[in-house]
Amino acid sequence: MPVRAAGPVQGTPKVLANGPDLVAVEVTVEPGEQVFPGHYPGFPIFPGVCVVEYVHLGALATAPAPGLRLEAIESTRFLSPVFPGDRLVVELDWQRKGGSWRCKATAGTGRGRAAAVRLRFAEGSAR
């Protein structure tokens, strides 16, 4: 497992599938996540960027090449809210894009799609 980088989420996505026709990870958004007390007091909603972070970690866990670094969030659409206790399932699709890699993902809960995310990764460490 790569050394854990600093981040706002405390769960670790588990790889469900990493084959040619399906790449998927799952993680439960525990009520104890450190972001909830502040987002928002008395009304815990998992921040959209934290859903993106779980997609990011899921992408790294199923990366087609080693040492990839997040270069851009090309697009993210927030489709429905995520709450404490939700089980998040993320399906990922990796494609080569010029000198970098693109990962298109959809994250869903029991209530349906939560976010559609397109990330771009560069190879090698930061400039």
Binding site: R4, A6, G7, H56
Partner: peptide, 22 residues
């Protein structure tokens, strides 16, 4: 966000989480 970093974490590992920059 840095609480769970290992003791010998490098500068690189102290990079502020990109999603939190956003």
């Amino acid at each position: 966000w840095y609480r769970e970093l290992s003791a010998g974490a490098t500068d690189e590992q102290h990079a502020y989480p990109p999603v939190l920059l956003v």
